[in-house]
């Protein structure tokens, strides 16, 4: 039976790992390749690198980090940040990523998701959806690392993404991100039960119980987090032992 994945997320900026709160106030938390090696030694299920600046120059730095990571770490890598063309995807995959994560480009040009899926196979195409509750009480999609509002309803958007051929979604609640107060379970549950593709929950984990909720309440295929691993003494090994004890299907 397929295991639920525990996925540390490393946010990158100028070739360093950073961590913020609600997509602001980023702090330096270390060197990415070193961090990746630590996670590899802990046998994580998968690691995600997301570059928050996503500029052209930044992408070369990102490729270098993936290349170096893939030389020493034989674990699954998902990589995003500035993925805008089929060539970008090709470069990221060739450097050692298994899946690419598209965000802003999917909103600006939904057809890109369809093309990427046709070309590379949908299993390798992940779309990341960052959203925030607006003053009308609706979840609204944001792009450009949470800086740009779109007026797009997040639930309608994820349904569209599945139709376009996205193979997996990472859902990040900007309101929850970095708060360590738990996932936006309501939305994760709605999306996971509606869609046939895997959904990764992200944003808000502060305790091991939050991971458990993401899987058992939210029905997420994978549970992602950053702060808890950077700023507390919890790590992926303790996480999977906790989830195993809670009766969930994780890899030990």
């Amino acid at each position: 039976m397929l295991k639920n994945r525990i996925i540390p997320i490393l946010l990158l900026k100028h070739g360093r790992c950073v961590k913020g709160k609600q997509f602001c106030d980023f702090r330096d938390v270390g060197a990415p390749v070193t961090a990746a090696k630590v996670y590899d030694a802990q046998r994580v299920d998968e690691l995600a690198f997301l570059d928050i600046l996503a500029s052209q120059e930044e992408r070369d730095v990102l490729l270098d980090i993936i290349t170096k990571t893939a030389e020493e770490c034989f674990m699954p890598l998902s990589v995003g940040g500035g993925i805008r063309s089929l060539d970008d995807i090709k470069m990221v995959l060739a450097a050692g990523a298994d899946k690419v994560v598209i965000n802003t480009a999917a909103v600006e040009n939904p057809d890109f998701v369809a093309k990427a899926s046709q070309h590379f196979g949908k299993a390798n195409i992940v779309v990341s959806v960052d959203y925030k509750m607006n003053d009308k009480g609706k979840r609204e999609v944001f792009t450009h690392s949470g800086t740009t509002k779109t007026d797009i309803d997040a639930f309608e958007w994820v349904i569209r993404l599945e139709e376009l051929g996205a193979g997996e979604l990472i859902l990040t609640s900007i309101d929850h991100e970095g708060t360590m107060a738990g996932y936006d379970l309501e939305f994760i549950t709605d999306v996971s039960t509606r869609l046939k593709i895997p959904v990764i929950a992200h944003g808000g984990v502060g305790t091991l119980a939050h991971f458990k909720e993401g899987i058992s309440v939210g029905h997420a295929s994978g549970v992602a987090a950053a702060s808890i691993f950077h700023f507390t003494d919890q790590n992926p090994i303790k996480t999977r032992l906790y989830l195993k004890d809670a009766g969930l299907n994780v890899r030990i």
Binding site: M1, L2, K3, N4, R5, D45, E46, K99, K122, A123, G167, E168, K196, I197, P198, V199, S221, G222, R251
Partner: peptide
């Protein structure tokens, strides 16, 4: 879920 992604 399909795609089949992860450890099995």
């Amino acid at each position: 879920k399909i795609p089949h992604i992860g450890w099995n």
